[in-house]
Design a protein around this nucleic acid. Structure first.
Length: 423
RNA sequence: GGAGGGUUGGCAGAGUGGUUUAAUGCAACGGUCUUGAAAACCGUGGUACUGUUAAAAGUACCGAGGGUUCGAAUCCCUCACCCUCCUCCA
């Protein structure tokens, strides 16, 4: 959520930032919030003054009673208090309405892009900042054929048990995926991340705090019996550990890694992109979360990017790094790098990681702060990145490493799989 | 699922209708003393909002939301969470 004081003090910069993201009506939206804020403060001033008067009046009543004065003035004061209370109640309702209105409007605004984010309105405008030098030549069977041939993933079974997009991993397919999870977790531990196993259902407050609500309500699965949501990413649960928290500066940066299943309705997705493991309703992901001091959060973003590149390189997958343009940024992000691996048989780039700095966008909703040297409480920066999303890595690995004899397992995974070939 | 007890500042813990602007203790921070430290003593106290050049000052917050009352941490209702016992269970 954009900080209100920035709208008060630097309206133009906010409007410009939103324009970059393609919000053509930014000016109207911001002006409405600006006006609402002024009105709200005027109401608060009145309200506070009336409350102060009421408090004094009640004290006077107490004094009258204590002195056991003839209570001639008592009823009059009570009546006055009642009148005042009526006024306060009306005003308080107006104040509350303004507050929730203001919040609702602020909630709908996406984050502002960092100044270094490339201009653009479509995914085509994203900038490729790195690509594996020696490009493999496309060819071979697509992974959806390979998993059938070697009985690694069964989509039909998933259809039967749940529905489309909920595959069943079997035998060496299941073992390979588990090997990847453990490999990713171990690598993260080595890089100084602390492992978390969070709940995969979250309440409404959590979903608001990290920005899934109200923006992506339709993309999450809801529980019918309870107002809970299945997490679309571990980021939601892990970041919410720090909701309503003040962290000591000495404890920064906070670095967490967590493995969870992720659930996405993917409403509106269709076509060839959803084939096989490319896009699922349930998938596994190892997620990295960092909470960093504002002064060096961008250094942490680069650190995370380098770290995730290291993972893909150890798996010997061809990949590229994109810096997302203004128009393709996620709702909460100020800057995002995507890492895409090349699926050789499909001849497609598959996004396996998205690494973002949210700056204060989430911490403002979370109320996640630290105390600076002058003891002032300030918002922290939150970051996250996938490290990595499992099914697409699996798909790319299978397609890349297929041979007539079988599918070879990358060296770094063999200690985890216990086998070096799927045949 | 059933019954009972609870939720107060960083922590512990008093407080059952009006000097509670929440006692007291611990921890913390600042100071005095000291060569330095400890101890002792003195002082400061959270969060958010409004307000101001800066202050001052004001308002709200005792799990959340509502209600009763001139006045609620305190009484009533709803909900969440925690503890104990019973039941069930990986």
């Amino acid at each position: 959520m954009i900080e209100l004081h920035r709208i008060r003090t630097d309206k133009k910069a906010i409007i410009d930032g939103l324009h970059k993201r393609g919000l053509s009506n930014a000016e109207g939206l911001i002006q409405a919030i600006y006006n609402l804020d002024i009105e709200k403060r005027a109401i608060q001033l009145q309200l506070d003054n009336l409350s102060a008067t009421l408090n004094k009046l009640n004290q006077e009543i107490a004094d009258v009673l204590r002195k056991k004065d003839p209570a001639a003035t008592l009823e009059a004061k009570k009546e006055e208090s009642n009148q005042l209370k009526k006024k306060i109640k009306q005003l308080a309702e107006k104040f509350k309405a303004h507050g929730s209105d203001l919040l609702a409007q602020l909630y709908t605004l996406p984050n502002l892009p960092h100044e270094s984010v490339p201009a653009g309105s479509h995914a085509d405008d994203n900038v490729i900042i790195y690509q594996t030098p020696r490009m493999v030549v496309k060819g071979g069977s697509a992974h959806w054929d390979l998993v059938k041939k070697y009985d690694l993933v069964d989509f039909e079974l998933g259809n039967k048990i749940t529905g489309a997009g909920f595959p069943v991993y079997k035998g060496k397919g299941a073992k390979l995926q588990r090997a990847l999870i453990n490999f990713f977790l171990d690598q993260a531990l080595k890089a100084g991340y602390t492992e978390i196993q969070p709940p995969i259902l979250v309440n409404e407050a959590s979903a608001y705090a990290t920005g899934q609500l109200p923006d992506k309500e339709g993309q999450m699965y809801q529980i019918a019996s309870t107002p809970f949501y299945l997490i679309p990413t571990a980021e939601v649960s892990i970041t919410n550990i720090y909701r309503d928290a003040i962290i000591a500066e000495s404890a920064l940066p906070v670095k967490h890694v967590g493995y969870t299943p992720c659930f996405r309705r993917e409403a509106g997705s269709w076509g060839a992109d959803v084939r096989g493991l490319n896009r699922l309703h349930q998938f596994d992901k190892v997620e990295l979360v960092q909470i960093a001091h504002p002064d060096y959060s961008y250094a942490k973003l680069e650190e995370m990017l380098t770290y995730v590149q290291g993972l893909v390189e150890q798996l010997a997958l061809p990949y590229r790094v994109l810096k997302l343009c203004d128009g393709d940024l996620g709702f909460c992000a100020a800057m995002t790098y995507d890492i895409e691996v090349y699926a050789i048989a499909q001849d497609k780039w598959l996004e396996v990681s998205s690494i973002s700095n949210f700056e204060t966008f989430q911490s403002n909703r979370l109320s996640l702060r630290y105390k600076d040297k002058t003891k002032k409480t300030c918002l922290l920066h939150t970051l996250n990145g996938s490290g990595l999303a499992l099914p697409r890595v699996l798909a790319a690995l299978l397609e890349l490493n297929q041979t007539p004899e079988g599918i070879h397992i990358p060296k770094v995974l063999q200690p985890y799989t216990g086998f070096d070939i799927i045949d």
